[in-house]
Nucleic acid binder design. Structure first.
Length: 427
RNA sequence: GGAGAGGUGGCAGAGUGGUCGAAUGCGGUGGUCUUGAAAACCAUUGACUCGUAAGGGUCCGGGGGUUCGAAUCCCUCCCUCUCCGCCA
């Protein structure tokens, strides 16, 4: 959520920044609502003040045994207007609140303008694009012929956009998770956390998935408003909802592996083949809650942490800065990391690292006590995939394939593979 | 699933239908004392919100109700704990 004060005092400036996302703000409507709100609020609070005073007077009078009927008569009037005022104010506040919750974050000035992913800006490249002296197979062909990936069986068990894995590939998949968590905890200073995979609507509102993007989520048929998590970001960031951090606790850096569930509504034609776009996938997520002054620096670090995984796996990648049109709802700036996929002969997104500034923190009421100012202030939140496991598996399969369709195990994963250094056909 | 108990400030823990944003203790902060520290003593210490300010308003698990007035009474939901059952 944007700072309401900023909206009140610098509306045009806010509108200009939001305009870069291709949205226009209705200034007239907002100032009307605000005007009404202000008057109504002042009036209501004044009435409440009168009520409080009179109630005390009544109490005093009664304890002395005096007659209070005059004050009681006055109270009747006050309470009548108070009731109508309070009702009006409540309606107005919820209208303003709804409007505020659907406003996206302001893009940082360093975010390139643009409308589609074609306008994203390449920041850097790393690694050698591998060359093969045979015709490369994609991960579907490789996985299916090795007997380790099975989309049909998953479709039978559930439906489309799911997969089952077996044997060496299943082990490799799990190895990737362990390797990433170990790297981030041992080398990058993250604390490992475990969280629920089902969350309530409040948590999703906190990180910004609700109220606008409900169709992207799997909602449970349960009496409470429960949803499957679309990313670990939701439960992990919400650890700090309604909490105030001490300064010495900062920065807070969590790493967490969870499955992610996405309905992928509106992407029916896209990436229907293979593991690129599934309803269920694993992800290792890095989440940070930091002092405002450090968040831009921390974003750069966060990207580096994600990159480190690809470097250790020796997978070629590039980092791009998302343009205003591609930027997520809650994000002020996002870097995507795209890994090289030989079979597609292109880079594909494997990580997304964002600085949300205080946008999520304001929704979450995630705050810290600033010892210098002695004030309670909003934290800044960041997160990034480190990395998406399914897509990393795809990248390893395709980049580490041999002519005979077997897969070499990357050096850094060998400790996790219990002696296996090559994936061959399952029996 | 059955039976019971309870949710109060950073924590622990009082609380009455009225002057209670709330005793007390711990913790935190500042100070006195001390070479320094501890102890002791004194003071101070919740969050949110409107307002330039003065000064208001809101918050005792969430929501609703009764009342002139609710932390206190009623309803409802959520959560926690104990016992039983079941289970991983």
């Amino acid at each position: 959520m944007l700072d309401p004060k900023l909206l009140r005092t610098e509306f045009d400036e806010v509108a200009k920044h939001i305009g870069r996302r291709g949205l226009s703000l209705d200034k007239k409507r907002f100032s009307e609502l605000e005007e009404q709100r202000k008057n109504l609020q002042v009036e209501t609070e004044d009435l409440q003040g009168q009520r409080n005073k009179n109630s005390k007077l009544i109490g005093q009078a009664k304890s002395k045994g005096e007659d209070a009927s005059e004050i009681l008569a006055a109270m009747e009037k006050i309470n009548q207007s108070l009731k109508t005022n309070e009702t009006k104010l409540e309606v107005l506040l919820s209208e303003i609140q709804t409007w505020m919750l659907e406003l996206p974050n302001l893009p940082d000035s360093s975010v390139p303008d643009g409308s589609t992913e074609d306008d994203n800006q390449e920041v850097r490249k790393w690694g050698e694009i591998p060359s093969f002296d045979f015709e490369v197979k994609d991960h579907v062909d490789l996985g299916e012929s090795l007997g380790g990936l099975d989309f049909e069986t998953a479709a039978k068990i559930t439906g489309s956009r799911f997969v089952t894995m077996q044997g060496g590939i299943a082990k490799l998949h799990r190895a990737l998770i362990q390797f990433m968590i170990d790297t981030h905890t041992a080398e990058h200073g993250y604390e490992e956390v475990y969280v629920p995979y089902i969350v309530n609507a409040q948590s999703l509102t906190g990180t910004g998935q609700l109220p606008k993007f409900e169709e992207d989520l799997f909602k449970l048929n349960h009496e409470n408003d429960y949803y499957l998590i679309p990313t670990a970001e939701v439960p992990v960031t919400n650890i700090w909802r309604d909490r105030i951090a001490k300064e010495e606790e900062l920065p807070i850096k969590y790493v967490c592996h969870t499955p992610c569930f996405r309905s992928e509504a509106g992407s029916y034609g896209k990436d229907t083949r293979g593991m690129i776009r599934q309803h269920q996938f694993e992800k290792v997520e890095m989440v940070q809650l930091v002092k405002p002054e450090s968040s831009w620096h921390m974003l750069e670090e966060l990207v580096n942490h994600a990159e480190k995984i690809l470097q250790k796996l020796n997978l070629a990648y590039r980092v791009v800065a998302l343009c205003t049109g591609d930027l997520g709802f809650s994000s002020a700036k996002t870097y995507d990391i795209e890994v090289w996929l030989p079979a597609q002969n292109t880079y594909r997104e494997i990580s997304s690292c964002s600085n949300f500034l205080d946008f999520q923190a304001r929704r979450l009421k995630a705050r810290w006590k600033n010892t210098a100012t002695k004030k309670t202030e909003h934290l800044h939140t960041l997160n990034g995939s480190g990395l998406a496991i399914g897509r990393t598996l795809v990248a390893v399969l395709e980049n580490y394939q041999d002519k005979d369709g077997t897969i070499k195990i990357p050096e850094v994963l060998k400790p996790y593979m219990h002696g296996l250094d090559k994936i061959t056909k399952e029996k």
